[in-house]
Amino acid sequence: MKKIMMKGTEAIGEAAIIAGCRNFFGYPITPQNELTEYMARRLPEVGGCFLQAESEVAAVNMIYGAASVGKRAMTSTSSPGFSLMQEGISYIACAQLPAVFVNVVRGGPGLGDIQPSQGDYFQATKGGGHGDYRLIVLAPSTVQEAVTLTELAFELADKYRNPALILADGLLGQMMEPVEIEEKQVSYDNSSWALTGAKDRPPRKVTSFNIDPYGLEKMNLQLQEKYRKMEQEEPRWEEFQTEDAEILLAAYGTVGRICKSVVKIAREAGLKVGLFRPITLYPYPYSPLEELAKRVSMILTVEMSSGQMLEDVKLAALRLTRIEFYGRMAGVVPTPGEIFEHLMQLVRRR
């Protein structure tokens, strides 16, 4: 198949179209504007609907509407915009509707800056909105993987009737890399629950509201049952040179690929270093990390944040091995060299 150079944002847009998404509602924000722009250009060509909403709050509620009639819908934003969407995401999760979100994370908190960051990990994986719900969270580290995971996001969202999130960052969004995007026939059938007009069938209701606490608890139990199933079936991760590793790097997304360079540098220096890269951030791949933790003398978690995924690493590996952290914040991207230097300091401190 023919490879083409694409930006991460554009590749996510094309992958969504291949996955059958014909509805995109969004509001501009850097560094993801190329995705909105791409959808504005491409969706009319394939008979879809692009609409620039008046705000992120409006966009998420448009997604809620499109999802409730069973249509594949997506929106994309960056950190402050994603915060604005949280109320709607909680509603969509409670109403058990599939929808795909993209957060091209930038430096924060607050208005922050527009450079790459991973500071929204807690918000993405621990529930940014209110109530007991979970998002399926996928973290691509290359443009090609962004394509695969966008398609997967639509599949999983439908499978579990739950919103899914592509958690990217400004670096992945802005960089160009060759991709292969395979044309495929996608069919999906949401007719068993979607609001399609009640002609010749009993009416249905899509709601995130139940005034009776016992009734609402029942809805909650259904959600929890789904989450347990996801935790059993959906964790995905990559291991890179872990077979003989004595030291493990743990990193996701862009930092995951930067850490692959660190592994190479470290191995040239004679250190047996491997990489554990979670691909699903929820459900988190705790079990494989726990197994690796038993075999290594140290896990160094590296993030573009103050140490958010670090808490999940500790959940998997606490007391099994030494756990260390290196992070940059606010849009500063760590280089392979600086991570390696930090690793060497830790090794010497042993």
């Binding site: 490879k3 802005q174 960089m175 160009m176 060759p178």
Partner: peptide, 23 residues
């Protein structure tokens, strides 16, 4: 940079292009 990367890809090499995109 994009032409360099595109040319590299056409020679079946692996390539990345990353811009500074500050304000």
């Amino acid at each position: 940079g994009q032409i360099l990367a595109q040319a590299g890809m056409q020679e079946a090499k692996n390539v990345t292009w990353f811009p500074s995109y500050g304000p």
